[in-house]
Design a binder for these strands. Structure first.
Lengths: 130, 130
DNA sequence: ATTTACGTTTACGTTAACGTAAACTTTGTG
DNA sequence: CACAAAGTTTACGTTAACGTAAACGTAAAT
């Protein structure tokens, strides 16, 4: 396992984003690729961070929120103060996520209803057995 | 039930948004309040639509996507062609929502892990029983 | 030697979703 | 009647998250 390395276009292709996007995430401080001369060279850690960013985006998080969540995984919190603060942050985030799940379930239920109505309408249009 | 009516500031207060936001949604064609002279007057249908918009936003949908979803509930689709198209749209949206639920569950699992690590670290800091 | 492919930096452009401010009307209220 | 509260329109400002283009370096392939 020689620590996998990736070029920017490799990652861009894998994740279906542009290289501009990946550079933008770096510009915003979300990733910190190495350099080989002038060229950026990405480690598997960078790759994971990009995956986390895109996951966050899929559920509507801003890049800043993504950064906040990713930072939780980092060993930047040494003293008890910071640990307690982090625990609070985690609780807040958990509540928000649970609310989101509820919202999604509600919307799914709505889709089910609409779908039923559609199917009924189609059935009636097909066989006017009156 | 005399069809409840609301002023713009009533709804703004209820939903915790500004009146500007509500007017903006109208500008974008998501709601169509009545007029009493020059003033806007909102029905309970408008109120429901606002609620749906805000729910959509909570799960990261754009206003356009919110509009699309809300339109599904409307009786605007008469022929079989449109009904089939709508069924397709519903399926797509359902898939996206299920993916979002998966993403949320993954993130919740991550939070659980981080929380455990925090608690462990705090425990060790409290009682160095070695 | 010159395309071709990939990389770089710098910088201006764009869209969405409002915020903010100005200038004005209408409607009670002391 | 003055004035405060809530409404209106019009319009410019702002932030996030990139898109797009220019101008350039480097290295492999023809």
């Amino acid at each position: 396992m020689g620590e996998a390395r990736y070029t920017i276009s490799e990652l861009a292709r894998e994740f279906g984003v542009t290289t501009r996007t990946i550079r933008f995430y770096e510009e915003k401080g979300l990733i910190h690729p190495l350099r080989q001369g002038q060229n950026r060279i990405y480690t598997s850690a960078d790759r994971v961070r990009i995956k986390l960013i895109l996951r966050g985006k899929r559920i509507g998080m801003s890049l800043q929120e993504c950064a906040d969540v990713i930072d939780m995984y980092d060993p930047d919190h040494n003293n008890a103060e910071q640990l307690h603060s982090l625990l609070g942050t985690i609780e807040e985030k958990r509540k928000a996520l649970l609310q989101q799940k509820q919202d999604i379930d509600d919307m799914l239920a709505g889709l089910d209803e609409v779908q039923s109505l559609c199917l009924d309408a189609l059935a009636r249009e097909q066989e006017p057995t009156s």
